[in-house]
């Protein structure tokens, strides 16, 4: 259940931005989560909904989650392909790959009322 810790970090980050901009409250936030970042999206959402009740500035906010698909590149033949940790290069069948996306865990956008 590290989703709760991730959400706590997210809330801290958002509140810091709110203070910095002198905003009143947060209306929406967009988070990017990689397909194989090891985050259970439903648990993440649940943790957010639970926490936002305790933070007045977030109470009206909407959480949007964007799932980032896993993209890889073979280090030997440069082939680009989709997949996860267990997908070999479709051309040379080996696992010497670079992960281009799919491990993201980031706050993308915040909308607030000032």
């Amino acid at each position: 259940m590290h989703e709760a810790s991730l959400v706590a970090a997210l809330v801290e980050q958002v509140i810091a931005l709110k203070e910095e901009k002198g905003a009143q409250r947060i209306t929406s936030l967009r988070v990017r989560i990689g397909e194989f970042a090891g985050v259970e999206v439903e648990a993440f959402r649940f943790a957010y909904e639970a926490l936002k009740e305790k933070v007045p500035e977030l109470r009206e906010s909407v959480l949007e989650i964007e799932i980032v698909p896993g993209r890889l590149r073979c280090r030997d033949c440069e082939t680009l392909f989709e997949g996860d940790y267990f997908t070999p290069c479709p051309r040379c069948q080996n696992f010497n790959r670079e992960i281009l996306s799919g491990e993201e865990l980031e706050l993308r956008q915040v909308e607030m009322e000032v």
């Binding site: 970090a9 931005l17 865990l105 980031e106 706050l107």
Partner: peptide, 25 residues
Amino acid sequence: MCETCGCGQRKITLTVGEALLSENE
């Protein structure tokens, strides 16, 4: 300005692009 009631509030959108664990980092 808030379009509904003119209360003087406006919305801003920030593009952040920071890792959730940046503080841990």
